[in-house]
């Protein structure tokens, strides 16, 4: 794999994570537990959609085949998506959404912090902009893990179930492959495994304060980074891509 090809893959991973999670969060709009949450969840979704545009436009530029963010988002099939399995998991109840968000935000924050020092200036720039947003996302999802974990008996039970159920999707974020190795080699991105300890530290301290029990390290579901997804992704794409597929070559 050439450096350019690896960089393209890497940018797809970044952009697909934010695209799919932004999509999932946007499903909440109008259905959340309170108006304030309709506002807040939409804000996070909007930030992620904005980041998607930046990552995928850059990916298209690197690829050099005339694809922009929309072409990449709307005209690839599931096997070509590179997001981690975590972000495509269904919203479930509010606890599941917030557990998914907290797992992702903590990793996303650590990753973007590293990427602000990337040798690839355009990546550093996007990461710096995204980091400001993600710092707030993390504060918010952490706060909800605390509230629900240490709220009522019911909320505690639901949050414990959520962190247990989603745990097996977190391992993939810290695994390294040829793409990650190329990024480390070229000074573009960090070794994913280097993010694991700080991530775990935040998980442990938050779980403790939230009176939750963090699951034991175990088998990690993997595949998203190389296009082997869960069954959920196909339905997301059926929704997301409907108009572009039904009316090819139209502009909107």
């Amino acid at each position: 794999m050439s450096g350019q090809e690896a960089l393209f893959e890497y940018l797809l991973r970044l952009g697909d994570n934010t695209l799919i999670l932004g999509h999932r969060l946007s499903e909440w709009c109008g259905h959340s537990p309170a108006l304030e949450e309709d506002l807040a969840l939409s804000n996070v979704a909007l930030d992620l959609i904005g980041q998607t545009q930046l990552w995928l436009n850059l990916a298209g530029e690197i690829e050099g085949k005339g694809r922009d963010a929309d072409k990449l988002a709307y005209l690839r099939d599931g096997r070509d998506f590179r997001n981690v399995l975590l972000v495509e998991q269904p919203n479930g109840d509010f606890a599941a959404t917030m557990a998914r968000q907290f797992y992702f935000d903590a990793w996303h924050y650590l990753l973007l912090r590293e990427l602000t020092g990337s040798k690839e200036a355009r990546i550093a720039e996007i990461a710096a902009k995204g980091l400001k947003e993600v710092t707030y996302h993390l504060e918010r999802s952490q706060e909800w893990v605390l509230r629900l974990g240490d709220g009522t008996e019911e909320s505690h039970r639901r949050m414990q179930t959520a962190i247990d159920d989603l745990w097996m999707y977190t391992g993939e974020m810290f695994e390294s492959d040829a793409v990650d190795e190329a990024m480390v080699r070229d000074g573009i991105g960090p070794d994913p495994s280097s993010l694991h300890e700080p991530w775990l530290g935040l998980m442990r301290s938050t779980a403790e304060e939230a009176t939750l029990t963090l699951p034991q390290p175990g088998w990690a579901q993997r595949g998203g980074k190389r296009g082997i997804h869960s069954e959920h992704l196909g339905y997301i794409l059926a929704d997301l891509q409907f108009l572009q597929r039904a009316y090819p070559n139209a502009t909107w």
Binding site: E27, D38, L46, D70, W252
Partner: peptide, 23 residues
């Protein structure tokens, strides 16, 4: 139509609009 908006920009605009309505 938020999840089916035809472009990323249209999706962001529509989501922001529905969000405004909550506001």
């Amino acid at each position: 139509w938020i999840t089916r908006a035809p472009t990323l920009e249209r999706k962001a605009i529509l989501l922001a609009k529905v969000q405004d309505e909550a506001g």
